[in-house]
Nucleic acid binder design. Structure first.
Length: 419
RNA sequence: GCUGGAAUCGUGUAGUGGCAAUCACGGGAGACUGUAAAUCUCCUGCCUUACGGCUUCAUAGGUUCGAGUCCUAUUUCCAGCA
């Protein structure tokens, strides 16, 4: 048992940048940072066993309290001995609050328009002004309709903390309100202010629950505050200042970004957040630029479902760009997905075989593809960590991004420290 | 050999006298960022960048203002009988 939920030790700071390496110590083990946290929303990393997650280098998994509250229920997970025993993964866990679902089950999915991916398009701007389908937010909490059976739910920040503590992950997120960056400034400010009030409510309940854990001889758990503020500089900075003064164990940075925005938005925030606390960039990492820019501007951990989701849909990372393994040009390609990759899939199988599995709808294809994509991203962040340690970060970044995106596009991700 | 039935897009089908091509599968391509996602979107007879144009319902005739649809013959397939 531990009374210390989390310690963060910075092992190297890269001069002239916000990038650093470090170690997050939790009751269930250490996370060497920067690190990519594997997405395990529904208490599973889709198509992968915990052993496979470990083998591909996954240090930690993120689960989602909204999904688990609905199914199988947090009491059941508690009864099973907590998420570590329930899933049989004994490394550190993050849990998300359900705040993202306020967005994803709400306006983001209105009429099938997904503004997470089309946040620059005009039609999406219309969608955010219409009423959401499955959620409604007020000051006290969020009214959900279950996406499973349509039943009415009401979730408060306190309830989210109760759920997360029952699930028993090592690091929790505050229940926040994620709002589209296309919303009006007034609405973004409203959501950000509400997120701050909710953060205090989360912290209060979290501290009470930790006192109970100590009384019961159980491990205490950690809580991250979640910074919001859309793309508005003053709101982002205000959010970082406000939450930075609160006694959180670390910070999540929430919102919806294009990769190019990391160098502004994330920097605004990380210049202000306490330097000695870990920072998690929520939901980003679907492409390499996210990872390099995130680290450069002070991110310690990422999570993103894209590697596994895209894998299941046939989009596979390679060092020279993303490929769609279903394309007919791979039918007789007997090379590995990526010759530079050290994953189980690339060491043992060909593009032609994996394409065949996809075309035949065979489930092994999903697993092999997921192993590869997850390893690609986890491994890239690992190498970024090494490159900070030996001060070769900018060389590594340049060579990686130029090969992945091409020289022209890679220029978009250059930084002042690099130029 | 006889009797009956059938023939429409790569495949299986919808269309039962009024602008043929519905749906599914197969095929081609794109998207996916704190997972309502092994999902979604687009294309899939030919020509055309597009607008648009052209072809086509086994084959050949016939009836009809008009035929994938009705009639005749042929071909092929299926079923039953011999």
């Amino acid at each position: 048992m531990s009374n210390k939920p989390l310690t963060f030790t910075i092992t190297k700071q890269l001069t002239g940048t916000l990038a650093r390496t470090g170690i997050i110590k939790t009751p269930h083990g250490d996370i060497k940072t920067p690190a990519f946290i594997v997405g395990g929303t529904q208490a599973t990393v889709k198509t992968l066993s915990p052993e496979q997650v470990t083998q591909l280098g996954g240090q930690s998994i993120l689960v989602n309290s909204y999904h688990l509250m609905l199914r199988p229920g947090v009491e059941l997970i508690h009864k099973a001995g907590g998420i570590h025993r329930f899933m049989n993964f004994h490394g550190p866990f993050f849990s998300d609050s359900g705040g993202f679902q306020v967005f994803s089950l709400g306006m983001a999915y209105k009429k099938g328009i997904d503004i997470t991916s089309h946040s620059k398009k005009g039609d999406a701007a219309q969608a955010i002004n219409t009423k959401s389908q499955l959620t409604k937010v007020d000051d006290d909490g969020v009214h959900f309709r279950s996406h499973l059976d349509g039943s009415k739910l009401f979730i408060t920040p306190e309830m989210s903390m109760d759920f997360q503590h029952k699930i028993g992950a090592d690091i929790h997120m505050c229940f926040d309100e994620l709002i589209s960056p296309l919303a009006s400034r007034e609405n973004i400010k409203k959501a950000t202010d509400r997120t701050h009030i909710w953060a205090k409510r989360c912290l209060d309940r979290h501290n009470q629950l930790n006192i109970q854990h100590i009384a019961c001889g159980e491990d205490v758990q950690a809580l991250y505050g979640v910074v919001q503020g859309g793309r508005q500089e003053d709101l982002r900075k205000g959010s970082a200042e406000y939450l930075g003064k609160c006694d959180f164990d670390g910070y999540g940075i929430g919102g919806v970004f294009e990769p190019e925005e990391i160098s502004s938005t994330v920097k605004w925030v990380n210049d202000i957040l306490p330097i000695n606390k870990p920072r998690h960039l929520l939901g980003m990492g679907s492409q390499p630029a996210d990872l390099f820019l995130g680290v450069e501007y002070g991110i310690d951990t990422f999570d993103c479902v894209a590697p596994t989701r895209q894998a299941r849909n046939g989009a596979l990372f390679t060092h020279s760009g993303r490929i769609n393994i279903k394309n007919s040009c791979f039918a007789q390609d007997f090379s590995p997905i990526d010759v530079e990759c050290d994953c189980y899939t690339c060491k043992n199988f060909t593009r032609a075989y994996i394409r065949h599995l996809f075309m035949a709808n065979e489930i092994l294809g999903l697993t092999l593809a997921s192993i590869h994509n997850e390893r690609f991203v986890v491994g890239t962040v690992d190498k970024i960590r090494d490159s900070i340690t030996d001060s070769s970060f900018f060389e590594y970044k340049k060579s990686f991004l130029e090969k992945y995106y091409g020289v022209d596009r890679a220029c978009d991700f250059e930084s002042s420290g690099q130029k």
